[in-house]
Write a protein that binds this DNA or RNA. Sequence first.
DNA 1: GCCAACGTTGGC
DNA 2: GCCAACGTTGGC
Length: 154
Amino acid sequence: MSRCWLMKTEPTTYSIDDLARDGRTHWEGVRNYQARNLMRDMAVGDRVLVYHSNAKPPCVTGEARVAREAYPDPFARDPDSKYFDERATAADPRWFMVDIEFVRKLASPVPLDILKNAPGLQDMVVTKRSRLSVQPVTSAEFDIVCSLGAGDTR
DNA sequence: GCCAACGTTGGC
DNA sequence: GCCAACGTTGGC
């Protein structure tokens, strides 16, 4: 039984279009313990909602799938990386990342204010002003978001 | 650009 | 182990 997640990204840093182009990517740079722990709970095949934060409007833009389980984030040990953390060692890598692969873009992105008002999504973490960059999502929530994004609402 | 929310750090 | 100071996130 695969689980569902939501992962935030700033589209100016890495957008759903970047993921569509790359097909697959590694999700480096998560430097929050709760988010890290959630990534370590991920299994290959888990479904992921890709969320654009700091976007106008902030929205869910697509779907991805976990392609590789958590492994040490090498950027934590690269002094030239903005994700460098001098406390990370080979024996204790401290920070982890997963690989995800592109599944599809939503026909129409689902903005945050729609999520907040959609029946069935009142408990969805992202609607709670949560700063967590990796969030658990129920399969029911996942399906509702996908159906909201299925139609062309323009 | 503002600022509320909240996670992290470090002095004690 | 408390908690004030500080830094970051991210909606608005």
